[in-house]
Design a protein around this nucleic acid. Structure first.
Length: 574
DNA sequence: GCCGTTTTCGGCCCGACTGTTTTCAGTCG
C-alpha cells in the first residue's frame, strides 16, 4: 500500500511550491489532496486500477495524472523538477517552530542555509540577526526550536495526552475562576496520537486564568503569552495551548479550536453561503456584523441547519453532509460496554491472577470478561501448552462459582503460524469459549502471503476474532504488509469478528478500517490486551477508536449481555 | 489546482501573537 508514500510526495510538492511563493490556493490543493489520500482506507493502487482516482475528494485531473505517472514511471516529473531547484533537506527548516516558508527561503538565499545543521550553526554564530527583519530574539527562538524538535520528534499517545490535559485542567480550576473548560483540538477529536494539547476555557477573569496558566507547576517555558491565548512547554516537552474567552463565546471557541481544519473550512464555507461568518467569538450575520449565537457549540451547528456533530467525527469525511440530513450515526458510548474480550493473566505473560482480574472487572461494573492468554509457540510470553489450557479451563470454572454478577470466559490469543495454521489443534480449540487469533511472528512476509495466511486462519471454524489486525505499534512499528480490504471482505463473508485492540500503542483496528468494516457488516469487539489490572482501564480508548470509526452500539460486541454473547459465539461455530 | 442547487470561471476560513518597525508581514492553529 503506497498511500502514505503518495501523500508525502504531494506534501513535498506543496512545500516546494510554498518556497517558490506560488499561488497559495494551488498549494492548498496539493495539501488537501495529500490529506485525502492519508485518510483513504482503500489502497490507492486499486483506485487507479479501477479508474476511480477522481472520486477521491480534492483530486482533480491535474493531481490524478501525476499520481498515475508515479505508478507507471516510478516518479513524477513535475516533482523532480521542483526538487532540483532546492537543496534536499531544505523543507526540514520549516519544521522549526516559528520558521515558515518565507523565512526559510530568505535564510537559504542570504546565508546558504540548506538544512537543520546549517541553521543551528548560523544561529550560534549570530549570523541570523545580520538579516534585516530578523533579530536576536528570532535567533534564540530558532535555537530553542531546533532543540525542541530534536527532543520531540514523536507525537504523544492519546492516553498520555488525555492524562496530561486532565491534570492541567484540575490545576487551573483550583487556581483561577473558571466557568467552563475542556480539551480541544485533536485531543478532543480523540486522534490516536496528538501533536500538542489544546485547551479552551470560559471565564470572566481572562488575565487571572492566563496568569494561572503560565505559572502552572508543569510549565518549563512560555512560548507565547497574550490576553486570550498563550502557549507553554511542559517539563515533559509537550506544548500546551490555552485559549480563554468570555462565557458568551465559549461554544464558538470550542468549535473553532476543536477543528479539524478541514471540517472548520467546510463549515465556514457553509456559513458564508447562508450569509453568516464564524469566528472564535460566535456566529455573525455578514451584512450587519450582528452576533447571532456563540454560547453553545450546538447552537452554531443548528443555526446552519445542522445537527450537532460529535467531535470524533469532525474530519471532513462526510459528517457535515450526514448532519444536514440528520443521518449521523448514533455513536457507541462507554456506558453501553459490558465486557472485555482480551485480558492476559499470570497463566502466560500477564501480571495478575484471574481472580484479581475478575475483582477489578466487577469493580468496573463489567458483566463478563474473556481471559486470553498466549499460545504455546510464543515462548517469550510464556505461551501455554495444551495441557495447561485444560487446567486453566478447570480453574476458571471454579472461580466463576465465586462471582455472581460476573462471568469469566476462557479464551486464548492463538498464534497464526507462518503457514496459516493455528497454534492449537481442534481438541483444544473446541473447548475454549473464545478463540482470538493473532500474528506474532513472520512479520516480513509479502502482502499476498500474509493476506492468505490470515484468511486461511480465519476460515478455521473455531475462530471467533482476529486480534490487532494491522499489527502496527504507533511510533514504533509499521503495520505488516496485508491487504486489509480482502481481510474485511472475508470477515464479512464468513462472519469473523475483528478486534479493536485498545492498548495505547496499538489502537488497532485503526478508525478508518473500523468504518469500512462497519459498512461491510463486520462486527467488532474491543479488547484491552491488558497485562496488568490498571490496563483494563484502556477500554475507554477502544471506545474512542470505535467512535472515530463511526461505530454504533450494534456494531460492537462488547455491548452484548453475557447471554447474547454466548449465543453469538456458539452460532459462529455452526 | 479543485470545485460548483453560480456548468465554467471566480473564489478559495479567520483571527491572535510575535518580532521588528513605527504599521505590518510572517507564523500558527
Amino acid at each position: 500500500m503506497k498511500n502514505k508514500e503518495i501523500a508525502n510526495l504531494l506534501y513535498k510538492i506543496a512545500g516546494f511550491l510554498s518556497l517558490k511563493n506560488e499561488n497559495p490556493f494551488r498549494i492548498r490543493s496539493y495539501e488537501r489532496a495529500a490529506q485525502s489520500i492519508e485518510n483513504l482506507s482503500e489502497d490507492i493502487e486499486n483506485l487507479i486500477y479501477n479508474k476511480k482516482l477522481l472520486k477521491i475528494p480534492h483530486i482533480g485531473e491535474g493531481i490524478a495524472k501525476k499520481i498515475e505517472e508515479y505508478f507507471s514511471k516510478g516518479k513524477i516529473e513535475y516533482y523532480e523538477n521542483l526538487r532540483k531547484e532546492f537543496p534536499e533537506k531544505i523543507l526540514d527548516i520549516v519544521s522549526v517552530p516559528g520558521i515558515g516558508f518565507k523565512t526559510a527561503k530568505i535564510l537559504y538565499e542570504k546565508l546558504d542555509i540548506k538544512n537543520l545543521n546549517d541553521l543551528e550553526l548560523a544561529a550560534k554564530l549570530n549570523r541570523i540577526m545580520e538579516i534585516s527583519h530578523l533579530g536576536e530574539k528570532t535567533q534564540q527562538n530558532i535555537l530553542r526550536g531546533i532543540e525542541f524538535i530534536r527532543k520531540n520528534r514523536e507525537r504523544i499517545f492519546l492516553f498520555t495526552g488525555l492524562a496530561l490535559a486532565e491534570s492541567i485542567i484540575d490545576e487551573l480550576k483550583k487556581k483561577a475562576r473558571i466557568k467552563q473548560i475542556c480539551p480541544a483540538g485533536s485531543l478532543r477529536r480523540k486522534k490516536e496520537t496528538i501533536g500538542d494539547i489544546d485547551i479552551v476555557c470560559a471565564s470572566t477573569d481572562l488575565p487571572g486564568v492566563m496568569n494561572a496558566f503560565i505559572n502552572l507547576s508543569q510549565c518549563k517555558r512560555i512560548l507565547l503569552q497574550g490576553e486570550t491565548k498563550s502557549s507553554i512547554i511542559t517539563n515533559d516537552n509537550i506544548q500546551v495551548d490555552l485559549r480563554v474567552v468570555k462565557p458568551e463565546s465559549y461554544g464558538a471557541a470550542l468549535q473553532y479550536f476543536t477543528g479539524s481544519k478541514e471540517h472548520n473550512i467546510k463549515l465556514r464555507n457553509l456559513a458564508n453561503e447562508k450569509g453568516y461568518k464564524i469566528n472564535e467569538y460566535g456566529l455573525f450575520k455578514i451584512k450587519n456584523n450582528k452576533k447571532v449565537t456563540g454560547k453553545k457549540e450546538e447552537d452554531i451547528y443548528n443555526q446552519l441547519g445542522l445537527k450537532w456533530i460529535p467531535a470524533e467525527l469532525r474530519e471532513n469525511q462526510g459528517e457535515i453532509e450526514k448532519s444536514k440530513t440528520n443521518s449521523l450515526p448514533k455513536l457507541i458510548e462507554y456506558s453501553r460496554i459490558k465486557g472485555d474480550f482480551h485480558i492476559h493473566s499470570n497463566w502466560s505473560d500477564g501480571k495478575d491472577s484471574i481472580e484479581d482480574i475478575a475483582g477489578k472487572a466487577k469493580q468496573m461494573g463489567l458483566e463478563w470478561i474473556v481471559i486470553c492468554d498466549h499460545s504455546q509457540s510464543l515462548k517469550v510470553a510464556h505461551g501455554m501448552k495444551p495441557e495447561e489450557v485444560l487446567n486453566k479451563i478447570k480453574e476458571i470454572k471454579k472461580i466463576n462459582k465465586k462471582f455472581k454478577e460476573l462471568k469469566i470466559l476462557c479464551g486464548a490469543e492463538i498464534d497464526i503460524l507462518a503457514n496459516g495454521s493455528l497454534d492449537y489443534k481442534k481438541d483444544i480449540l473446541e473447548q475454549l469459549d473464545f478463540v482470538l487469533i493473532a500474528i506474532h511472528s513472520g512479520f516480513k512476509q509479502d502482502e499476498a502471503t500474509m493476506t492468505n495466511r490470515i484468511i486461511s486462519a480465519m476460515r478455521n471454524k473455531y475462530v471467533h476474532m482476529f486480534a490487532h489486525p494491522t499489527g502496527r505499534l504507533l511510533q514504533k512499528r509499521e503495520p505488516y504488509m496485508v491487504n486489509m480490504d480482502k481481510i474485511i471482505e472475508e470477515a464479512s463473508r464468513i462472519g469473523t469478528f475483528l478486534e479493536i485492540n485498545a492498548n495505547p500503542q496499538r489502537l488497532d483496528l485503526p478508525d478508518i478500517y473500523c468504518r469500512k468494516a462497519k459498512e461491510k457488516g463486520v462486527l467488532m469487539g474491543i479488547g484491552t490486551d491488558a497485562h496488568a489490572l490498571e490496563q483494563m482501564e484502556y477500554l475507554s480508548l477502544g471506545i474512542w477508536v470505535a467512535r472515530r470509526g463511526w461505530l454504533e452500539s450494534r456494531d460492537v460486541l462488547n455491548t452484548l449481555s453475557y447471554k447474547q454473547l454466548m449465543k453469538i459465539l456458539q452460532q459462529k461455530r455452526k
